[in-house]
């Protein structure tokens, strides 16, 4: 792209923009999506392949994330809560994107509230999921 006119103004970038909820959920959507597509996908496939491989390979998978008594270890909690929070955040911002695709929700106040709502919903859904697992 050497032929591009260097005198053209550059678009404002992160260094001079004030952070807002809409920017935050936009980058969260990309970050959570990329995280799940790499770490999440590999762990899901490891789980499936380990389960198909037999009791020994499944034990290796389970032991990586649990302590002797069967509860989750530190890595298990980081990965477990990280992936569920990522899933719900990506799901909520995904729904927001589908609404924005229709042309709705671009008024400043509505847009900001929608962005905040995705983060509130994802934290609540993650808490609900782990509470249900815990008390069941």
């Amino acid at each position: 792209m050497a032929s591009r006119n260097p005198a053209r103004p550059l678009s404002p970038h992160l260094t001079i923009w004030r952070w807002g909820p809409h920017m935050l959920v936009s980058i969260l959507h990309r970050a959570t999506g990329s995280g799940m597509a790499t770490v999440g996908a590999m762990l899901l496939v490891w789980f499936l392949a380990a389960l198909a491989g037999g009791a020994d390979s499944y034990a290796t998978f389970v032991d990586t994330f649990t302590v002797e008594s069967g509860g989750l270890n530190v890595l298990g909690y980081i990965v477990g809560v990280g992936l569920t929070l990522s899933l719900f955040q990506h799901m909520m911002t995904g729904i927001r994107h589908l609404v924005l695709d229709t042309g709705a929700g671009f008024e400043l106040r509505t847009n900001k509230l929608g962005a905040l709502a995705t983060m509130l919903a994802s934290v609540m859904l993650t808490a609900l999921f782990w509470l249900y697992l815990g008390i069941k």
């Binding site: 996908a41 590999m42 899901l44 496939v45 499936l48 392949a49 389960l51 198909a52 491989g53 037999g54 009791a55």
Partner: peptide
């Protein structure tokens, strides 16, 4: 590669192949 491994693993269990 990842998708094929996943589907093969699922089918292997579903079709009852011994581990």
């Amino acid at each position: 590669a990842l998708g094929a491994t996943a589907i093969f693993s699922i089918l292997r269990i579903a079709f009852g192949a011994a581990a």
